[in-house]
Design a protein around this nucleic acid. Structure first.
Lengths: 125, 125, 125, 125
DNA sequence: GTGGTCTAGACCACA
DNA sequence: GTGGTCTAGACCACT
């Protein structure tokens, strides 16, 4: 399910956060769907449960999931999160990337077509 | 010349790389222009020369500058670099960010207007 | 009657306590009015009766309701309760919150207008 | 320096977060002042360093402190944080508390005088 | 010496 | 069974 690079300088839990974010964003994990339990995922990835916890915690504070004692962790429906801070981060990063892309020779058209491509592929059901 | 945030959790050398990249991208540092020497910049920013060195090395491997032994570091003319690797990285990152932005509620229009804004501000010689 | 957020990390019984407190505070549940029976409410909210029980016990110890064996639970008339303990708690919490609000940049005016807003909305019979 | 209740249902790290928040809000710990190191505080409180870490992490993500590898943790200057999420939380809690205070018999005047008292005592140097 | 990550293993609260 | 907390102890990266 995941490919984690235990040798990377990037902490495992951050890699996990990224991967899970992608799954949520791309609607592979749907609203209110249950994520694998901490222990389950830990065993599956042969990683310490605490590390999974840390990732889940981070995802919760970022507004991507919610966790219930005794029940599990679930994908947070977007409408309710309305995450201003995350949005600002994304805006800044977009500006930085646009400048870089243009510098490297990409045209506005190319960038826009990339956007449409992504937009089309996004599963919105 | 620079504003380095010694408070940021980001390593200083990474901040330097980013700042210098920005200067090159925005054409403040022009093609083949000489960058400040390591020692000079180190003194100016009251930072360890090793840190500057590390940043320059990083920029070189990214294709933004080239170094000549005993002469210094210079801005890499973009036509000559034609950095396919970097371009692919940027494309992938753009796709990732677009998906995230859309997920967080940004519309295509918003994203495009952000692009035009950046494009407009870019200094193209 | 209630909207309980089963997704919230807050225990359900605590949510119940809060909601019932609100109803009492806003005079929706009047002095000496009978609260729904534990079983009744449990069925209505499809929640374990023990959870309701726990909430009622909490409300009783906070001085908001009183229970009569075999008869049910009732709203405690406020004049009779004269809950000094609760008042002191609230005063302390207000002081803490005021300091925090000011620290985060709220002005006295903002805070006061928030107070008037709440005061206006309060149903005082 | 701190009084921690290891028996409380409230996690130690949360108690720590609260205490440190208070110290920062009340300007006992000033802008950019260094907090005790993780290990130092751990030893002082006879608590595991990981628990302190967790508290510091939380404080960082709340915008109250910033941490630098190899240097330490420091109080985040307020102007830069501009913490929207925290502010919204505080506003909601204020509304809740105001309603409760009024119900328990406090007058607007009392509440306002409490506010002025706090405002006056806040150290703004 | 500092913060940060990770593991192993125990225990608690909630359902 | 679930998430959550805590400890003990090891190791890493950055100053």
């Amino acid at each position: 399910m995941f490919e984690l690079d235990t040798r990377s300088r990037k902490p495992i839990y951050e890699q996990l956060v990224e991967k899970l974010k992608q799954l949520i964003i791309n609607n592979v994990l749907k609203e209110d769907e249950k994520l694998p339990s901490v222990r389950e995922l830990a065993q599956q990835l042969t990683i310490n449960p605490n590390t999974i916890q840390k990732a889940y915690r981070e995802l919760e504070s970022l507004g991507y999931i919610y966790s219930l004692k005794g029940k599990g962790s679930f994908v947070h429906p977007i409408e309710k999160s309305d995450n201003v801070e995350e949005l600002n981060k994304v805006r800044e990063e977009l500006k930085r990337l646009f400048a870089e892309a243009i510098y490297l020779g990409m045209t506005e058209k190319e960038i826009e077509s990339l956007l449409h491509e992504v937009k089309g592929g996004q599963k919105n059901d």
